[in-house]
Computed example of a mutant assay.
Amino acid sequence: MDKANLRQRILRSRAELSEETLKKSSAAVRELLLDQPWVQMAGLVACYWSFGSEPSTHGLIFALWKHGTTVILPVQRADGDLDWAVYDGPDSLAPGPLGIMEPVDTRRGVDTIRTAGLVLVPALAVDRSTGVRLGRGRGFYDRALARVGPNVPTVALLHDGELVDGVPAEPHDQRVRFSALPAGIIELVQM
């Protein structure tokens, strides 16, 4: 299956998820991540503000922030890259160009992701054997992940059924090392 068809299939499946299923799935992923020592010890976490039927990151971000972790969130740039700014609580966000909430704090630059001890990224699907991540097709996160160091855990947040066999890969596609699903955290690529 090509990327466009796989993307459409996953988006259709997500559209059929009930509000209750979305909440339970997101809560399970959040709790699994918060229980991991490598998440608890990450001083700086790069995350994203979820929207629509994505596994919700809102509670996760808030919990990390309340725990004292510095959380940076992406700010979309006109050139298709991601800048980063610090999350400083729920009142520190405003809608960005695509309607997704972004921090209003000072922009830290595209290379700020290099300093993260943990990177959490959105995905529609991830290939279980290679860690190839299927995004929405604009390449924002492939560009950002290319800057992440080789020993930094990169984690795609997924719903059940989105860890699949055979995500098509292109030369620019960046792999993730883990997938976090309601059923557990799966290591995909050895660190």
Rank of each mutant, 00 (worst) to 15 (best):
S13R: 12
F178T: 09
R77I: 02
S26R: 05
G131L: 04
G184R: 12
E20Y: 03
V119Q: 07
A144T: 10
L82W: 04
L188E: 10
D105Y: 00
Y141D: 01
G184C: 14
G137M: 09
L34C: 08
R114G: 05
L60W: 13
P95N: 04
R147E: 12
A63G: 13
D111Q: 09
G80C: 13
D2T: 10
G59H: 13
A4P: 00
A28M: 13
V75S: 04
G139R: 08
G184T: 11
A94I: 01
T112H: 06
R14K: 04
V39I: 11
S53A: 03
V45Y: 01
M101L: 15
I72G: 08
V132G: 02
Q76D: 02
K3E: 07
R108H: 06
A116Y: 10
D2R: 10
P95V: 02
P171W: 14
P97Y: 04
S18Q: 11
M1W: 09
V121F: 02
S56F: 02
D142S: 15
G149C: 02
L11C: 05
L44W: 01
V110I: 15
G96T: 08
L60Q: 09
W84V: 01
Q40E: 13
S13C: 06
G59L: 12
V167Y: 07
Q36E: 14
V104T: 15
L22D: 03
A180C: 11
L134K: 05
K24T: 06
Y141L: 04
F140H: 15
V152L: 00
K23N: 05
G99Y: 06
P37S: 14
L134D: 03
Q8L: 07
P74G: 13
V104C: 10
Q36T: 04
R175W: 10
W38D: 14
Q174Y: 09
P150T: 08
L11T: 01
L118P: 02
H67G: 14
V110G: 03
G43E: 12
F178V: 11
M41G: 02
L44K: 02
A85V: 07
L73K: 12
M41D: 06
R147M: 14
L44F: 01
V126M: 04
V104Y: 11
Y87W: 09
R128P: 00
H172T: 12
T154N: 00
L73V: 10
E187P: 12
G135S: 14
E20A: 15
E170N: 06
D2M: 07
L17C: 05
A4D: 14
L82R: 08
R138M: 14
I113R: 05
D105A: 13
R143H: 14
T57R: 07
R175A: 14
C47L: 13
I100V: 15
L11V: 03
E54P: 02
I100Y: 11
A46I: 02
Q190L: 13
G135C: 12
D173G: 13
R14P: 01
L163E: 05
A169C: 10
G89E: 03
L73W: 07
V148P: 05
V75K: 10
V45E: 02
T154I: 01
K24P: 00
G59N: 11
L157H: 01
A27P: 00
P55Y: 00
P37G: 11
D81I: 00
I10N: 04
G68L: 14
